[in-house]
Structure formats: structure tokens, C-alpha cells
Simulated assay, not measured.
Amino acid sequence: MADVVDRYFSAYNAHDLDAVMRCYCAKPVAVGPGGPAEGRSEVASYHTGIWQAFPDVHATVLQKVADGGITAVAAVGTGRHTGPFAITTGEVLGATGRYVSVRCCWFFGTEGGLIVDQQVFYDQLELYLQLGLPPGRPGA
């Protein structure tokens, strides 16, 4: 159902963790470039980590396509990097103060009006270059 995805993005952009988590089922799975988050506490931790790294992060939905229990969303995520950010090498990047604008795509699986699984894809090279990381060694 696309309605829960709309609620998700509204809550995400408000940085309202309680409202975000009300969009998920009891045992959600979320997968992104940093790996999987399984269960409500890991999914909640993922969101708080993003909001700590980018306190003003905002996702602008460009396109949404729903087919049964699957919803795909193309968006642009923007924000200023002012807190610690765990990159995919496992390292934590300190605040750079840089503003980023990154294209991303989400796939949501829903059942009973709740998100059961979510996958997010974004151009990591685009993000890392905007954060000032060298293209050959993201953590260097």
C-alpha cells in the first residue's frame, strides 16, 4: 500500500522516530549500502544514525510507483553533514560541514498497511565525493 509509504516519508522528513516506526511491522528488515538492519531496534538505530549525521536531511520524492504490495520511490536526499556518519568501509566519518544532494531509490514491501521490508539504493560515489572523500579510498 502506497499510503504507508507516504506516511513514512512524512515522518522521516519530520525526523519523528515514533511515527516512522509506526509504519513498520513487528519484525521489519531494511537493507541499504551499510548492510541489513533486522528488527525494530536495528531499523530505528539506522534512522537515528542518519539523522545524527545529517540533522536537516530531507527526502524529496520525485516519483512513486505502486503495484500491489510493492512500492518503488525515486527521490533526492539533501542535507548538511554535521555529525558522525558510518560509511560502508565500517569507518566513521567525522562532520565535514558539507551539503549533499544525492539521488536515491527505495523499494518497500508492505503487508496489512505496514512496511515489512525496505531496500534503499543510492550512488555512494556521488555521496562520498560531495563529502570530500577521495574516489579511490572512501575512508582515507
Rank of each mutant, 00 (worst) to 15 (best):
V73S: 01
R22W: 10
T82K: 09
V31W: 02
V43G: 08
A37M: 11
G49K: 02
Y24T: 02
V31T: 07
S45W: 06
A75Q: 08
A44C: 09
Q63Y: 05
R80Q: 12
R40I: 11
Y24V: 04
A72W: 00
P55L: 03
V29L: 07
I50W: 12
A44S: 15
K27M: 12
V73M: 01
P84I: 02
G39S: 10
P28V: 02
K64F: 03
A86K: 11
F85Q: 05
V57S: 09
A30C: 12
D56F: 10
A74T: 03
G39H: 04
G83A: 05
P36T: 07
T48V: 15
H58R: 13
A59N: 07
P28T: 06
A30V: 13
E38M: 04
H47F: 15
L62R: 14
Q52G: 12
Y24A: 02
W51L: 09
V57Q: 08
T88W: 04
A37F: 11
A37L: 07
G79L: 14
L62N: 13
K27D: 15
G35M: 05
S45C: 07
S41K: 15
G49H: 03
T48P: 00
D56R: 12
T71F: 01
F54A: 01
G35K: 05
V65T: 14
A59C: 10
A86F: 04
D67P: 00
T78S: 13
E42Y: 07
A66N: 12
